[in-house]
Design a protein around this nucleic acid. Structure first.
Lengths: 336, 336
DNA sequence: GCAATTTACGCAAGCGCTTGCGAAAACTCA
DNA sequence: TGAGTTTTCGCAAGCGCTTGCGTAAATTGC
C-alpha cells in the first residue's frame, strides 16, 4: 500500500490540510510543523497521488502529443523537442500515434475530453478542422496544430510555409540552370500539398517560365512511392533534369530509384529532398534538402499550448515558419 | 463545464451508480434503463473523467516509456512498436526522455510511485539496478527493462544479446577474409559494452586468432565519436582491414570519416554497422549491419509489463534476443 | 396465489487530494 | 493588560467516479 497524505498527517499529529499546505509551499503553516511534515514525507518517500491531485485541482500537468505518423523523422524530431520543452516546466507528454487514422485521432482526442491531459498538440495529419471544431470551441480545450492546414482554421497553429519552401527550391534549381524540374508531392486535394504545388507554380511564373504539368507527380508519402515516382516520371513525355521531393520518405525512395537506374546525382538529375536527417547528409552525394525548423516548431507550439492552458493566449495565434534550404552537392550543376 | 456522471444520472432519473454500471457494461441494470442512459451519454458526448476513474479503481491504463536517449533510431523504433501494442489493449504511453541523466530517471520513476502510470518500461540506459531496486521490490511497481544490463538483475527484462551479435559479425568478417577487425564500442565498464567486447574476444579465440587490443576502441555513442574513432585508429600501430561499429550514430560517423578520408568501402575497409535504419540501406555501398529486433523487443516487453500489471507474471522473466546480421555490400571482400 | 428467487436499482462510503472558512493561539502595541 | 491583528491550524466539503450492500420490485415455481 502506498503511503498517503493521511498517513503523514496522522504521524505528524496534524490535519491533512496542513500537510497539503506544507507540501505545496502554501502559506498558513508554521515553521516547525512544516519542517516536521517535510521530514516525515522525506523519510517515508511520500509521493502525492497525482490522480487525486489532478482530480482536486482539475489539472494533470500532462499534454497529449498526437502524431499523424511516427515514421517521419521530422515528426519525431518535433516530438523530441516538445518533450524537452515540456520537461523544463514539469509537464509530461503522452504520445499518441494516429497513423493518419481518423478514428484513432478522435479517440485520442478524448484524452482531452476526459481530462486526462491539460492540452494537446497535433502534429501533421489531414483531418478537416470541422471534426475538431466542436471540442475546441464548445469545450475550450487547449490545443494547437503543427503543420496541419485546415479549411477554416480557427485553431492556434504553427505551420511550415511549404509554398515558400518549394519556391526557394525551384528558385535555387533555376539558378543552377535546371529548367525541367519534377515535383514529387502528395495528393492535390490535400491542403498542405496544394500549397507546395502553389509554390512551384509561383516560382515558375515569376521566372517567366510556364509549368508543364507532366512534371508534377502526386503520390504517397512512403519510400516506395518515391521509388515508383521516378520510374513513372521517366515514362512520361518530358524527361526532367531535376527533382524536388517534398516528403522525407519519398526522397529516400527517389534517390534509390535514381541510383538503381544507373543515373548519377547531380550529373543526370539534380535532387532537392525533404528533411535533414542522418541520411541526407551522409548519402553520396550529400543531398540538398528543405528542412523544417523542428526545434522551433516544437518550442512555439508548446509555448502556445502552455499559454492556452493558462488562459493567457489572446485570440487565435498562427505562426508560419519557413523551411530552410540546405544546399549540398546534389543540386549543384556540374559546370556552373 | 464538463458533463459528468451525476448530470447523466439526474437527466435519466436514476442513481449515479446505475449510470456507472450501465456505462461499464456491468450487470444489474435493466434493458431500458441502460438504453436510456447510453442514449443520453451519447447525446451529450459524455466522457468519464479518467482521473476520477483512476482514483477510484487505482488504475490509469497508462504506462511510462522511459528512454535513455531519444536520438537513437533504434530506440524510437521500439517506442513506436510499444505504442502499437499498447494501443491495441487501450493503453496510453507516456514518453519520458532521461537523456542518460540519472536525476531525470529518478524523477520519471516517480510517475510510478505517484500512481500516474500502471507500469514502466525502461529502454537502454546504464543506471545500476540498485537505484531502482527499492521501488521495484518494496513497492512492487510493475516495470520491465529493455536492453539494460544491471549487476544484480532481478528485474524482468528483455535484452539483446550483443555478445552474440558481435560474435556473428566478427565471424562473418573472418569468412570474408578480414583479420584485423577494429571494434568501435563504448566504455568498457559499461556492462552492455563489455558484453560486446566479450563477443569479439570469443570470436577471435574460437577461430584460433589472438586479439590485438589496439583494435578495440572505446568512445562515445554519437556521430562525432564515430568520426574521430576512425581518425584515431588510423594513427595506431596496426591498420585494420575492417570495422565493426556497435552503435547507430557512431556507425554513421565512421562511414563519414572513411569516405572523407578518401577511402572506399569495402575495398579499403569492410564495415559492419549497427542499426537498420534508412541510412544503412541507402548509403553507398549498402551497409552490413547488426540489427536488433525492435518490434519483438517492444512486443515482448509490453507483454511482460501487462502481465506484471495484472499480477500474472510468475517470477522474474528474462528474454534474450539475438540481433540479426544483415549482410550487404559493405562487408563483402572484393575478390572472394 | 404465495413463498422463494432473481433482477434492478439506490444509498453511501471511499479513492487521495485541495481549499474556503472559521476558530484558537500567538502575537502586536499603546 | 486588553483590544485588535496576525498566524497557525482543523473541519468538512468537494473533485467525479466505483462498488458493496441492502431493499423493493419483478419473476419464478408449485
Amino acid at each position: 500500500m502506498q503511503i498517503t497524505l493521511k498517513d503523514i498527517a496522522r504521524m505528524a499529529g496534524v490535519a491533512e490540510s496542513t500537510v497539503s499546505r506544507a507540501l505545496n509551499d502554501k502559506p498558513g503553516v508554521g515553521q516547525e510543523t512544516k519542517a516536521k511534515i517535510l521530514k516525515l514525507a522525506q523519510k517515508y518517500n511520500y509521493r502525492p497521488n497525482q490522480l487525486a491531485r489532478g482530480l482536486a485541482v482539475n489539472k494533470t500537468n500532462m499534454i497529449a502529443v498526437i502524431l499523424a505518423e511516427m515514421d517521419s523523422p521530422g515528426n519525431i524530431e518535433i516530438v523530441k523537442n516538445i518533450e524537452k520543452a515540456a520537461e523544463e516546466v514539469d509537464y509530461q507528454i503522452i504520445l499518441c500515434n494516429t497513423n493518419n487514422d481518423l478514428k484513432k485521432e478522435k479517440s485520442y482526442l478524448s484524452l482531452l475530453e476526459a481530462n486526462q491531459v491539460d492540452g494537446a498538440i497535433f502534429i501533421g495529419g489531414k483531418l478537416v478542422s470541422s471534426q475538431l471544431l466542436r471540442l475546441s470551441f464548445e469545450e475550450k480545450n487547449p490545443m494547437v496544430l503543427v503543420n496541419r492546414l485546415a479549411e477554416e482554421n480557427f485553431f492556434t497553429s504553427v505551420l511550415t510555409n511549404y509554398s515558400q519552401g518549394i519556391y526557394k527550391a525551384v528558385e535555387h534549381l533555376f539558378e543552377q540552370g535546371f529548367r525541367k524540374i519534377a515535383l514529387i508531392c502528395g495528393d492535390k486535394d490535400n491542403l498542405t500539398e496544394s500549397e507546395k504545388i502553389n509554390g512551384y507554380y509561383q516560382a515558375y511564373t515569376e521566372a517567366g517560365f510556364s509549368v508543364n504539368e507532366d512534371l508534377i507527380f502526386s503520390t504517397g508519402a512512403d519510400r516506395t512511392s518515391g521509388y515508383n515516382a521516378f520510374l513513372e516520371i521517366m515514362n512520361r513525355d518530358i524527361i526532367p533534369d531535376a527533382f524536388i521531393s517534398t516528403r522525407e520518405l519519398t526522397t529516400i525512395g527517389l534517390v534509390e530509384a535514381i541510383k538503381f537506374g544507373g543515373y548519377f546525382i547531380p550529373d543526370d538529375f539534380a535532387v532537392v529532398g525533404y528533411g535533414d536527417n542522418i541520411l541526407t547528409s551522409v548519402i553520396d552525394p550529400p543531398l540538398t534538402v528543405l528542412n523544417e525548423p523542428a526545434a522551433e516548431l516544437a518550442k512555439l507550439s508548446f509555448d502556445f499550448l502552455l499559454k492556452l492552458i493558462k488562459d493567457k493566449l489572446e485570440g487565435q495565434q498562427i505562426k508560419v515558419l519557413t523551411p530552410e534550404l540546405i544546399v549540398r552537392e546534389s543540386s549543384i550543376a556540374k559546370y556552373n
